[in-house]
Simulated scan of single mutants.
Amino acid sequence: MPRPIIPVAALLLVFTAFGCSASESANGSFTATKSCEAYSSFAKQSNPGAQKIVPGTEYEVREINKVDYDWLRVEVPGAQPSLRWVRKECGTPELSDKPTKAQRQREIAAAAAAGSACNIANKQDSYLLAITWQPGFCEHVKYNGKKPECDAMNGGKLEAKNLNLHGLWPNKKECGTNYGSCQGEQFSLKQETIDKVAPWMPNFFYERTFGAYEWNKHGKCQSLSPDDYFVKAVSAVRVVNDSEVGKIVLGSVGKSFRVNDFFERVKASYGAQVADSITLICTQRKYLQEIRVSLPLEFSTDGELKQMVGGAVPARARAVGCGDEVYVEGAGRD
C-alpha cells in the first residue's frame, strides 16, 4: 500500500506550531486593570466557560509565553481548566525571582514526588550568577544597619567602580529555587582570597558575614573549596563587568537607560543566547539593584561573556520589578 505524501508546507506548519509553543516558568502576581478574555490556549483563542479576568483582582502567575513576553498564564479560581492565558496589556504584572508560597509548596512536593533531594551536594545542573549594583541596593533597600559596606558607601567612604558579587548559585531544575543548604566544607578563606574578593564583594573589606552566608546556603552544594569557589565567582563577575553589560551600567551612573535598548545592545554584541540569559532586577520599579546571568553547569571565566554563557538555559524573565527605564544610582546618598 503506497504511503501518503505529506506536502512540505504542511510539515513546516507542524514544526512551526511546535516551535512556537515553548513558554517560560514565572513567579509573581498579575493585577487585572480591565476585563479581558482568559484563554486556555491563546493561539487557538479557546476559552471554555467564557472566562474573563476581573479588574482589581490579583492572580498568581505561573508562566509567560517567552522571555520578552506579551502573554501570561495565571491561575483563575473556579475556571476549568484553571490555568489561563491573559494579555499583558490587560493588567499590571509583578514578576519576581522568588516564588510565591503556593509555588514553593508545589516545587517541594514535585521534588519529593520525584525522589530528588534538594540539599545533596554536587547534584546541580546549572548555575545562576547574581550581581549587585551596590549603590542601588544600599540606597533603596532596607538593610537595618547590618551592611557596613552600605554605611561606608552612603557616607561617601566607599566608591562604586564596578559591578559586585551577590552570589554564584548552583541550581537543580527539579528543586526550583529550593536547592541549597547542603553539607560540606566549613567556611574559611586565605587572606590572599579575601584580598582578591573584596573589590568585587565589598562586605569583605569589613567582615566575612555575607560571604559565610553565601557559602553555607549555596557554596557547599558544589565541589570547589571556599577559596576556589569565591575566586571563580568574582572572575565571573569580572567577565560581565568588562562586557557590554558593564559598559551600559557603568556608563549610565546618575541617569537612566531603557530596558529595550539594554537588551538590544547586548544582543547586537553577543547574540540572542546571551541576551536571553540575563535578568535585570529593580527596586521601586525604577532603581537597578541586580543583574542575574544564567550559566551552564560547566562554564569558563577565561573568555568573554558569550563564551561564559555558552548554552545556558534562558532566564525566566528579562526584567523583574522594572519599568521601561532603569535608573543607575550613584554612590553616596543624594
Rank of each mutant, 00 (worst) to 15 (best):
R238S: 15
S223R: 09
V197M: 11
D227P: 07
E192I: 11
Q222R: 03
E207N: 15
V234S: 00
Q186R: 09
K196S: 14
Q191H: 10
L224M: 14
H218A: 02
Y206Q: 01
R238T: 10
S188A: 14
V234C: 03
V237Q: 04
K232P: 05
F204P: 06
P202W: 10
K190P: 03
F205P: 03
C221N: 08
F204H: 15
Y206I: 02
E214R: 09
V239E: 02
F205C: 06
D227V: 14
S223H: 08
W215K: 07
K190W: 03
W215T: 12
D228M: 04
F205D: 11
V234F: 03
S223D: 15
V237R: 00
G219V: 01
V197S: 08
S225D: 13
P226D: 14
S225H: 07
P199L: 12
D227G: 11
K217F: 03
E214H: 11
P199S: 12
A212Y: 06
K232W: 05
R208F: 05
D227L: 11
Y206L: 01
D227C: 13
D195N: 14
Y213H: 15
W200Y: 13
F210P: 02
R208I: 11
P199G: 10
M201F: 15
E192W: 04
V237A: 09
E207V: 13
V197L: 14
M201Q: 13
K196G: 05
K196A: 15
Y206H: 03
V237M: 09
V231C: 05
P202V: 12
E214V: 12
S223P: 07
W200H: 09
W200P: 07
E185F: 04
W200D: 12
E214Y: 04
E192N: 10
F205W: 13
E185S: 12
V197D: 13
Y206T: 02
S225I: 10
P202M: 11
E185A: 12
W200T: 10
V240H: 00
G211F: 00
V240Q: 01
K232H: 08
V234A: 01
A212C: 02
E207P: 06
Y206N: 01
F230E: 08
E192M: 08
S223K: 12
P202N: 13
K220F: 02
V231P: 05
D228K: 06
L189D: 02
V240S: 01
D227H: 07
G211D: 07
A198R: 10
D227S: 08
V234N: 01
D195I: 02
